[in-house]
Design a binder for these strands. Structure first.
Lengths: 366, 366
DNA sequence: TTGAAAGCGATACCAT
DNA sequence: ATGGTATCGCTTTCAA
């Protein structure tokens, strides 16, 4: 036995072995009523004398008492839990949101239940049911089809937030970055570097969704008098970026610059260009979209338009917890129709930023 | 002046729309008692006639009834919730575990509460308290110091699992891959390709933790009669890998092969080698450790020893939910000392696998 | 300022 | 096979 001078285990509570202490135990030990214990723990709604407050705090410490959130939730009808539904956790873009939503939620005093559909068809229903039965106070969706999100949350009277969706959806708060503006930023950056053949690689979007990145690229390219001919569709992952570049460079007159619809696509594109013996940025320049952490450690480092992950996540949590103020006219259509409380809608858009690194020639030719 | 006359009396005493239907509503509509409704929902513990069962199921459908997990948890003392504590979500190694633990948990019918400490000193206490107060039935820790995990869970009587920790810890189930064997695999692979100067780059480990990767590399290198001189310590991230390579190649006789302690380090190393004009694998070969998704899309693709993420996560969930069988002698020290139920311990180790890709010359020099 | 007590919704035992 | 009901831990109104 080493003479471990570490901190001694704090004096163990000497209460009944198998049972967690309850508020009644605290009250008994402190010599007060259970109501007073509540008042102390919640700082209200009634005042407590300093004397009793200390006795209660002491009893709590001695017993190692922890409030039971289930009981609290049952009484109050609020769990202080938020549900986060995502299609796939390993996508770094999603991971960024998971990270910042987790932070924002804990700052608001909320717990976060995360559920991935693992891109399994029809899994949304089960995932949401589980979350709802656990009593989440609000739901945040990422990369989930709004139609599906609406269907599986039908009849629920809790705030629902859709992340990264470019259109308003009745009954939801939609929060997104300005993909059009971001695409313009990215493309304009390449135009200004003198590129004439600027390609756009993207994954396939659901038909219902306006393709704002495409629009931004198109408008910017056209305004510069360049061709919109270099538009390739693929899948939203690394393999997609790789394949798209391979196709692009089968053409007689391949592009000199690429705007990639996501970081993942850009990383795959980088790999393909490397295989083809093309140098980045001297042979081909690239700007990516999203600005996840890996853009800083690709070869070369990726210039990208970045998502305001924190701002979006904070807003999402604020709405999901009911903290955020809705726009003034948002409660206009509260028709009280058939008594179904029509949840308020809002559409919030944040601007994106251009971060110049190496892949666009940012710190090479200038 | 808004005609806002305060909160509307939204609730009508009749078919109150704002209120979720309860078991009593179902019982009333079905014309049975609440007990019968329970028996139907839980398939027991008492039998119910086919006739009544259908009436109840019907009523549930009509009302859109959802059981209230808070009430259930209060009565049963079990939330069907697991807590997952991690230091940092954006680390792809962690994301792999989040993904596979989420999958395993939902397959077991459990919800997952995730909390990151965001690597903030002392944040573990608050994070665990929140999880515990929400009543999680078990806790899973990843990359959390066992001392800290033990301290912040003191006095708790729920299963605690430590992921990716190489030693048994009293009161915890520790689950890990065999890092020693993995390191041997990786190093041996480089030895067999004829490398004489094989470096090992790793991050700094807590002093209390046996450095199994280092041991595996050392033993394998020594057994081959090679030098153990190329050992560099850095940080466990991409920047660390980059810096370590830069240092390594300041030496007069730099290594011809690198075993990287993590994928992130390998990716940073790749970047530095690129800067230095070294080609991978022809000038320098690399094998990485972990086998996260990005190893398939680095330039070149990384040969790596891979973690059995699914197997580890499934075991973790099985233990955390109390489903898994503990080894026979694990309950030996149930001394019932002072009535404090001594939780069982176990240490589970899974083997790693070598996946050969390009960075080690795997598909280049055959 | 404090205590007593009525519920929140679900479970399951004790009756029938 | 079914109904009535005490109970889980906590919040808060009402009474003192």
């Amino acid at each position: 036995m080493p003479t471990n001078a570490g901190p001694m285990p704090a004096s163990q509570p000497t209460n009944t072995p198998g049972r967690m202490p309850t508020r009644a135990d605290v009250a008994r030990l402190a010599g007060v009523s259970t109501a007073v214990v509540s008042y102390v723990i919640n700082n209200g709604p009634r005042p407590v004398s300093q004397h009793n407050k200390e006795k209660v705090l002491n009893a709590i410490r001695i017993l190692g008492y922890r409030p039971n959130a289930s009981a609290r939730a049952l009484k109050l009808g609020s769990t202080q839990l938020l549900g986060f539904v995502v299609t796939e956790i390993l996508n770094p873009f999603h991971a960024e949101f998971i990270n910042s939503v987790d932070l924002a939620a804990s700052q608001h005093g909320y717990g976060l239940m995360i559920s991935s559909t693992h891109e399994i068809e029809g899994r949304e229903q089960g995932v949401v049911s589980s979350l709802v039965e656990h009593g989440v106070d609000g739901l945040i969706f990422l990369s989930v089809d709004p139609q599906v999100a609406a269907r599986v949350t039908e009849g629920l009277d809790i705030p629902r937030v859709l992340l990264d969706y470019p259109h308003p959806v009745p009954g939801f708060v939609t929060i997104t970055s300005d993909a059009y503006q971001g695409a313009c930023l990215a493309t304009q950056h390449l135009v200004e570097r003198g590129h004439q053949r600027i390609a756009y690689i993207e994954g396939v979007l659901p038909a219902a969704r306006t393709n704002l990145r495409l629009l931004g690229w198109q408008h910017t390219v056209e305004k510069a008098g360049l061709t919109t001919d270099y538009h390739v569709q693929t899948t939203w992952d690394r393999a997609g970026g790789r394949d798209a570049v391979l196709r692009l460079f089968e053409r007689p007159d391949p592009p000199s610059a690429i705007f990639a619809g996501s970081d993942l696509i850009a990383v795959g594109a980088l790999q393909a260009l490397h295989r083809l013996g093309k140098r980045v940025p001297s042979d081909v320049a690239i700007v990516s979209f999203d600005g996840t952490a890996e853009t800083e450690f690709s070869l070369p480092m990726l210039t990208s338009v970045t998502q305001p992950f924190s701002a979006i996540s904070e807003a999402a949590v604020a709405y999901a917890t009911g903290t955020a103020e809705l726009p003034g006219d948002a409660r206009n259509n509260a028709s009280a129709l058939e008594g179904v409380s029509q949840r308020q809608s809002a559409h919030v858009v944040y601007p994106m930023n251009l971060v110049v690194r190496d892949s666009s020639g940012g710190s090479v030719s200038q």
